[in-house]
Design a protein around this nucleic acid. Sequence first.
RNA 1: AGGCGCGUAGCUCAGUUGGUUAGAGCGCAUCCCUCACACGGAUGAGGCCCGCGGUUCGAGUCCGCGCGCGCCUACCA
Length: 878
Amino acid sequence: MADIPKKYKHHDVEDKWRQQWEDWGIYRWDESLPREDTFVVDTPPPTVSGSLHVGHVFSYTHQDLIVRYQRMKGKNIAYPMGWDDNGLPTERRVQNLLGIRCNPHLPYDPEWKPIRKGKKDTSIDEVSRRNFIEACGVVTEEDEQAFEHLWRHLGLSLDWTDQYATIDDHCRKISQLSFLDLVEKGEVYNVESPTMWDIDFKTAVAQAEVEDRPRQGLFFDLRFGVEGGGELLIATTRPELLGACIAVVAHPDDERYQSLFGKFAITPLYGARVPILAAEHADPEKGTGILMVCTFGDAMDVEWWKHSGLALKQIIGRDGKLLPAAMGEAPFESVDADKARKAHDELAGLYVSKAKKRIAELLAEDGSLPGWDGPALVGEPLPTDQMVKYYEKGDRALEFVPTRQWFIRILDHKDELLAQGEKIQWHPDHMKSRYSHWVEGLNQDWCISRQRYFGVPFPVWYDVGTDGEPDFSRPIYAEAASLPVDPLTDTPPGYTEDQRGRVGGFAAEPDVMDTWATSSMTPQIQSHWGVDDERHAKLFPMDIRPQAHDIIRTWAFYTIVKAWMHSGEIPWYHVILSGWILDPDRKKMSKSKGNVVTPDDLLVEYSSDAVRYWAARARLGTDTAFDPGVFKIGKRLSTKIFNASRFVFMQLDRAVDDGGMPGVDQITDPLDLALVDRMRTVIEQATKAFDSFDYATALQVAEDAFWSFCDHYLELVKLRSYAEEDSPGRRSAVAALSWSLRTFLRLLAPFVPFVTDEVWSWRFAADGRPSVHTTSWPTVDEVAAVDAPELDGTYDAAVEVLTAIRGAKTTSQKSLRWPVARLVVAGPERYLKALEPVLDDVLRAGNVDAGGLQLEDGESPEGHRFAIEAELAEEMGE
RNA sequence: AGGCGCGUAGCUCAGUUGGUUAGAGCGCAUCCCUCACACGGAUGAGGCCCGCGGUUCGAGUCCGCGCGCGCCUACCA
């Protein structure tokens, strides 16, 4: 029998159990068991290039609480670890950390090694694509180790033997299989079309990655000429796009412009002749009610242009600078070509913001058309608040640039995707509306191609036509058996490497897939869809997808899209949404605000159990304030578990020595029966809560009961359990203590896994089932043999009298051990009856002289059962 | 501008299908070293449950209208 330690030292205990769990391997998935015995988690793969954040600790703890409960319910847990390392965040981090940029035209340098640059070294080296990708691999591996360390420290019961990374061969293969399957099903296409484009990252982005940011803009009032005489006044915030103006439009019902429809306007400065047309999207209330359409100022321009049949005037390049357009030539015709070219020469090569300033000057100086007096710009520009689209990770506004991109058809399937959302259970339920609203509001197909490097390549080549250019209408797809492939180094079926880039040969698709194209496949990545049918059947659809609510429109949505397209199924039965951590000012915690606390510090200062406790108190979907006070409560709970267990085991040891192990069938004393009865309710409530993923309620129920157990029951039963001789009363007490503790440890094990397993190991660990985490969740059946209490309210009556006795001592500034000479308890008969069977325990706990007890019939005072009077003894006594 | 959520003690939050006197912890005050625990314990003081109307015998809870906060969509003329 192991000695029971005296003091709780959380660092030692937690270090010991982390290692023990690893040695036992108790968190591994058993591949041999059937699906119905298995609980499958679609673990969120963290973006490894992001920083470690308390938010991670928060939401991953939520998953682990549910997982640990399910494990104790007897489920075979599939809880792997994934890493999202591919994609733009990694590239950006690598660029900053190593001071490098990818230049895809450079040859591979096998000698080159990634080296971290000091903060002051701002030089930038260009490296080849392959060197760049290798550097990404090195950096992400370091980052993954930092995450793994944190996860292990926190006590997440992940299966570390089952890992994946979104850039690894397996994930590349699944991603490419997914792509080919969608090609086969006709759900993917490539097209050249104006796309939202980030000018810094120089890549297309998808609707889901775009956010609106408020910006202070300026309204410029510009005079346009009207062919045949007259003028128009047009208000615009983007005068720099004047050269790309293709039309002027007003609302068809707008009386002011009826006479102009069908005529032509002449743009100032550029002198271009553009039609004046009616368009529904023009709002007569805004500006002057008439506006210029440019290619492209906004999404509306794109939409309208697509149906207009008008020629494109591309003016912004992929780098965000104004192109040196061939002014004066069709389609850039002008009434004064020389003037137009001269003006545009001033603008070409400038970024949008600079060009805006410059053209405003040009328009203010002159910009006029023949026959005008005065400049084209009227008055001073007026400030206006506008919302501008940005790539969520970008620093400068998006532009619409025509490029060739791959898209997945989602606009055609809104109804089906909404129906899939209905089949999934969302926790909390109201989060489902976020999904439906997003699906209903979709206005673009899903753009999955990115003009980047560290990502999964498309398994695609193109025929090279007689002009030496790739023929994008004739893609060559890889064969499924050859995956994963990299078209830049691998050759398409039926070709040889020397045909690369040659007429009659092939050319690689240079783009890579967006990260979401891969992470939307996490269930299939884990189940080995298309690779191992047996494994897939055992893991798919999964049980839960835990995630944060801000990525419903991306991760949840895309995963639902893919599962539906590939197999017509939902990817999981439940989505579990965690909230955010807010700082004490109720703002979302973020690095830029400098209010981020590092998780490691917290774990060291308060213990992993304490930090888990804090996370567990937050209900699903609810944002939570970062509150160090709650860590302290968690730490106190751990300490309490430790100390209360010491007491129980000391009594248990004595009872075992005197007469063998007490069983629940020996619980006979009225107070103990009342305790067991309360425990039945606790077990039922905690189980019910956990079954609906409501870990917070399960914790609250168990924790409240545990504190009551310590503060009241232990005090009431203590002296009976101290009895020198073995007796039915003592055995009843010890049996009740032992079973209750066994139950509390299991109820609390998901929340504070370290201290509970430590305590469990002292006396409860059985051969073959060494850990509390692999024992079974408590059930009321365990105490089926224990009688129900004869009377209701016994426990509460005892607590009330004991509390009153303590109150009397406290107000008299006496120790709680001080003897009570006289105790008068007055109340209705039914309460006195409930109290009677436990009076002995109460009197002992309160150190009341049995001769001084008086029970009287009487009324209950407000909010109480009894009127209680306690008269303390004169002397402390021995 | 639409949608979703929230508003309860100084703070962080619970409050089942409406049902007597609205709960907990932290913090605060006062007291207590009692053989599980001073990394503790006891006791206590703190609430127009955001506002206004309505339904009801009865509303923190249901309905309507406001106000405030957060988030998600939309909004570059």
